[in-house]
């Protein structure tokens, strides 16, 4: 297929995934601020989700101070922010429109309908009452889209590139949210077991819809290192780095065989994969969780570039 088409599909799924992630981040922040008594702590939440969304820079270009209202607006509907939910939907729709021919009607209608509905949203939908509705809608649209992708797309390279984008984005998102919150996962004698931490941990788990999964897997109270393990190393957890890398390895392998050339991106993915496959959470924490996560984020950017070099340009 055309490199440009592969690139469009790769980014179509990335943007749809990112929209959901940003919506989940906002939800997390709303939950945390509503439970925290201190205003200062509340402001920190809004700042940290800006960081976790990678929209810090674009936010501070327009705003001096952090406020809940402004952050939500920036992340949800600011068209000048390419990672805002509505921008993601618009870009996804543009990519989808360009690739109409390789999409099923269900996928196209999921993307197109989302865009049409997004255009109908008014200021009323973005008030503090309305915002929850928009967040639920965002998650639903993204879920519907993924469902349409996995149940109606032919299993050929178009599908594989779409999946590749999805898992690269997802791995990056999970790593980012963990990195912003890594300090709450570090053993610190004063605070461990404190009420605030517990709330924070639950929020992290919820942001990647893993709260129940945790209990099913570990059958015990929340322990920060287990939360880190769940989201980094456990292959059964769909948003863990391990699970995403497993999918990517499989997809790159398939693409390499099908398209007749494996390159630097396969090697790099293999390296990342084995780090996780044979890693232990104790070692990771000992050697620095933050360092581990920033390395992973940097490596996944390089991996994205290599995939692009090899197939998408």
């Amino acid at each position: 297929m055309l490199s440009r088409s592969a690139n469009n599909l790769f980014w179509l799924t990335r943007y749809m995934e990112r929209a959901e992630y940003v919506a989940r981040l906002i939800e997390t922040a709303i939950r945390l601020t509503s439970m925290s008594k201190s205003v200062q702590a509340g402001m920190n939440e809004w700042h940290s989700i800006l960081e976790a969304s990678g929209c810090e820079e674009s936010y501070y270009e327009k705003h001096e101070k952090v406020s809940a209202r402004a952050v939500i607006d920036h992340l949800l509907r600011d068209r000048s922010n390419p990672s805002s939910v509505l921008s993601c939907f618009e870009t996804a729709r543009h990519n989808g429109r360009t690739e109409r021919t390789s999409l099923s009607n269900d996928i196209w209608e999921a993307v197109n309908q989302t865009w049409h509905e997004a255009r109908q949203l008014t200021d009323k939908d973005f008030t503090s009452d309305g915002v929850r509705g928009v967040l639920d809608w965002t998650k639903n649209r993204s879920l519907l889209f993924r469902g349409a992708v996995s149940s109606t797309m032919l299993r050929n390279e178009a599908y594989w590139f779409a999946r590749l984008g999805l898992f690269l984005e997802r791995a990056d998102n999970t790593a980012r949210i963990l990195d912003v919150k890594y300090h709450t996962l570090l053993p610190s004698p004063d605070e461990v077991g404190g009420g605030l931490d517990y709330v924070q941990w639950t929020a992290i788990l919820r942001s990647v819809s893993a709260a129940r999964a945790y209990h099913r897997i570990y059958h015990r109270e929340l322990k920060p290192w287990l939360i880190a393990e769940l989201l980094i190393l456990r292959p059964e957890m769909p948003r863990s780095l391990m699970a995403c890398m497993n999918e990517m390895i499989y997809l790159l392998d398939l693409l390499g065989r099908e398209l007749g050339h494996e390159g630097e991106c396969s090697r790099l993915a293999g390296q990342l994969h084995s780090k996780l496959r044979y890693g232990r959470i104790d070692d990771i924490i000992q050697q620095g969780l933050h360092e581990f996560l920033t390395d992973f984020i940097d490596d996944s950017v390089v991996l994205g570039n290599e995939i692009s070099q090899q197939y998408l340009t």
Binding site: M1, L2, S3, R4, S5, A6, R100, L259, L312, T313
Partner: peptide, 26 residues
């Protein structure tokens, strides 16, 4: 779509030694 051929834009094509090529994943 109906003909089953690629829909290309200018940047998808390039000319080298007077031959036209398209950029594909292969």
């Amino acid at each position: 779509d109906e003909m089953g051929i690629e829909l290309v834009e200018g940047p998808d094509l390039f000319v080298d030694h007077n031959v036209v090529y398209m950029r594909t994943t292969r």
